[in-house]
């Protein structure tokens, strides 16, 4: 074999090994997003979806679960104290991506609200039990930052144990995080998560437009900068092409 051929062969072999090491990815279910992140979220991983009220965190998360259900992947949605589950579902059921036959079947709901006055270990044990029971491929905790407001001192340890545990269950987990006035994103959660997606509202003239920005995605080449998004009942949450 001449030198050039041997080099090419070795490159091909190395490329093959590199491809083999590439992470498995799951489609986000958000039109326009997967093109920005090498085809989908790494599996398993923990993704923080952060934003202030009205930026589309819950819609984003539900669409992610319903996209999985379309491929027979089990989804598990933990709600904290944001709002009663039935109200949240009543509003979200207007989206065309919501298929009611998945409720209670391929998409299970668990209310964590009543657990949050318990010791941290007990909350984690409860979450782990629910995951082990349903064996989901997709998990949402909406919003995780509420837990921080309640347990305070143990929050960092809780987040470390929670994210470690979520990945070990072999799922992609979305943690939504509320952004307080004056902060860019919930810092404690951003350290524990593998990826951070920021949803924001920006004033443009008399209106406020919604944007999505990927701040961090481990092991993934991703596009940077804020991209406009639209949220409609017909199309759900969509990342638009133009970058600002």
């Amino acid at each position: 074999m001449d030198e050039v051929s041997e080099k090419t062969w070795k490159n091909e072999e190395e490329n093959e090994e590199l491809r083999e090491n590439e992470m498995v990815r799951v489609a986000s279910g958000i039109p326009g997003l997967d093109d920005m992140i090498e085809g989908g979220f790494p599996f398993p991983s923990v993704v923080l979806v952060a934003g202030s009220a009205g930026t589309g965190k819950t819609t984003f998360s539900l669409q992610f679960l319903f996209a999985g259900a379309e491929q027979d992947e089990q989804g598990l949605f933990f709600t904290t104290l944001s709002e009663p589950t039935h109200w949240m579902l009543q509003y979200s059921s207007n989206f065309s991506f919501v298929k009611k036959e998945y409720f209670g079947n391929l998409i299970q709901y668990v209310d964590l609200g009543s657990m949050l006055n318990r010791p941290v270990d007990e909350i984690l044990r409860y979450i782990n039990e629910k995951i082990a029971e349903t064996m989901p491929q997709r998990i949402v905790i909406d919003p995780v930052t509420i837990i921080g407001n309640i347990i305070k001192d143990d929050y960092r340890k809780f987040l470390f144990d929670l994210t470690n545990s979520l990945k070990s269950w072999q799922a992609v987990s979305l943690l939504t995080g509320e952004v307080r006035p004056g902060e860019m994103y919930p810092v404690e959660v951003s350290y524990a998560a593998d990826s951070v997606i920021l949803l924001s509202l920006k004033a443009e003239g008399n209106a406020r437009r919604k944007y999505l920005e990927i701040l961090k995605m481990r092991g993934t080449d991703h596009r940077t900068g804020a991209y406009p998004v639209s949220i409609t009942r017909e199309d759900g949450f969509v990342v638009l092409r133009t970058r600002f």
């Binding site: 782990n128 039990e129 082990a132 029971e133 064996m135 545990s165 990945k167 070990s168 269950w169 072999q170």
Partner: peptide, 15 residues
């Protein structure tokens, strides 16, 4: 090979 064995043990226990 991909997570501490306790997760699999826990999963089997719960089932």
């Amino acid at each position: 090979l991909d997570r501490p064995y306790g997760y699999l043990a826990h999963l089997l226990s719960l089932h």
